[in-house]
């Protein structure tokens, strides 16, 4: 399997706070890889660094054989790497459709109408609400919008930061189903989750972050079965 993303020894700081320490991992084409860990472990910091919102002091990030270190944040998405950020961060004062159009910002000259149809077919709820202001959507609908918006850029690798946060169990199930469907359709996925059980059960491989460091890694099944992981993240 070809590597699509290679994170090599990154160190990220917020001022004097050392949030990510010597982190290295890899995502291969066609995989679902998950990054799990407790609050404040450095999961979001890692994803934000990969997408260029934050910068590492050391090491390198390689996406599709190309170094991302010198690429400004706004040029990352057109390389095929999209992030659904923590807390959704949809544009609350813009309509659902406008949010999706922003997702297609880099798709100049392509058939955006057709992509919109694809997204609306995936999320029928969004179609019903296409003219509605995103700030009036429910939390679950906003999560779907954030995912749809990211998909409008045709990512080769989709990074999701806690897509299940604050959602009712039924919606969590739906979101995970969508993630698996995207994966079947050929999108590689890097998934950050608090909900470790759900994440590990869909993931090919997983990495466990603890206070900024990767402490364990393995296949989804191995990690699910590991007593230490069970104890720390799966509630016994």
């Amino acid at each position: 399997m070809a590597s699509i993303l290679k994170v090599d020894n990154i160190n990220v700081y917020y001022g004097s706070i050392h949030a990510v320490k010597d982190v290295s991992f890899e995502v291969n084409e066609g995989e679902i890889v998950t990054l799990i860990g407790a609050n404040g472990a450095g999961k979001s910091t890692t994803l934000n660094t990969i997408s260029g919102l934050l910068h590492s002091r050391t090491g390198s990030i390689t996406f599709l054989e190309e170094p991302l270190d010198k690429v400004p944040c706004h040029k990352v998405v057109s390389k095929g790497l999209a992030l659904v950020p923590e807390g959704r961060r949809v544009f609350l004062q813009m309509t659902v459709q406008e949010n999706l159009e922003m997702g297609a910002y880099t798709q100049t000259g392509k058939n955006i109408a057709q992509d919109l149809d694809t997204i609306y077919a995936l999320f029928p709820r969004l179609k019903e609400r296409m003219k509605q202001i995103a700030g009036t959507l429910s939390g679950g609908e906003q999560q779907m919008l954030a995912m749809g918006r990211a998909l409008m850029s045709h990512p080769k690798l989709l990074m999701l930061d806690e897509p299940s946060m604050g959602l009712a169990p039924i919606l969590v199930e739906q979101i995970f189903e969508i993630i698996q469907n995207l994966h079947k359709a050929g999108t590689t996925i890097l998934l950050v989750e608090q909900n470790a059980a759900a994440a590990l059960s869909v993931a090919d491989r997983g990495y466990v972050l603890e206070t900024g460091k990767i402490v364990t890694s393995g296949t989804g099944r191995e990690l699910l079965a590991s007593p230490a992981i069970k104890k720390a993240y799966l509630g016994g």
């Binding site: 997408s51 260029g52 919102l53 400004p72 944040c73 706004h74 040029k75 990352v76 998405v77 057109s78 999209a82 992030l83 950020p85 961060r89 949809v90 544009f91 609350l92 004062q93 813009m94 922003m102 997702g103 910002y105 880099t106 918006r149 990211a150 850029s153």
Partner: peptide
Amino acid sequence: EDKGAAQLMGINV
């Protein structure tokens, strides 16, 4: 609304 999210869309802020 959100400069970070705008950058993630590919907008040159």
